[in-house]
Amino acid sequence: MSLLELRKLNKHFGGLHVTNAVDLTLEPGEIHCLIGPNGAGKSTLFRLILGEHHPGSGEILFAGENITALKSFARIHRGLSVKFQVPGVFKGLSVRQNLEIALQSRHRGAELEAEIGRLLGFLGLESEQAQTAGNLSHGQKQWLEIGMAISLKPRLLLLDEPTAGMSPEETRMTGEMVQRLNADGMTVLAIEHDMAFVRQVAQRVTVLHLGQVFAQGSIDEIVADERVAAIYLGQAHA
């Protein structure tokens, strides 16, 4: 059974058809990248999967269950988790408290402290733990939010531009981390513009264009596809 299945998903904003009959299937254990030019509807698709937007028509199935009508927090309980495009950390709170808020519903007391310590080590943020999250560098904020997202031990992790604003070195490290999480059984769906990252991690790639699935395949197939190159250069507006 596939982990996530989008069936004929539609979303209009006024006259704009941002998501147009999108069918997408994610198999358990895969790393799937979603690419496409700006305005292709990638982030909207994430919001539909997360329940922040509701589709005009179509269905969303998670592990066989129809979650189309579920509230966002309930979808998180089913095993979804997300890192947003703009780092969504709790800016006024300390790094430690950020992680505590993410972890406290699964762990208590000494176990909670140990988990926070383990996650701080994993993220390389031990020396920043008392720091206010808003004072972190952009890259560190990204890491912190990824840490919060994975602390929920999700079955499906959604990453919206996880490497935006990162150095090539940080991007490579993020890629390695995603691969490590994937090796432990986490399925990943990532929106990413950085093709080095996509090449590093993606097992399958879906190209979104004008709200529709434009192409799908391995990274080599996608790169070789002339039509894909054309839409990135703005020549294929049908």
Partner: peptide
């Protein structure tokens, strides 16, 4: 913790379940 998390970023709080 959850109350101040909602003050700081309600969307993130919801997405932590």
């Amino acid at each position: 913790n959850v109350i101040v998390a909602i003050r700081e970023n309600p969307e993130r709080a919801e997405m932590l379940g």
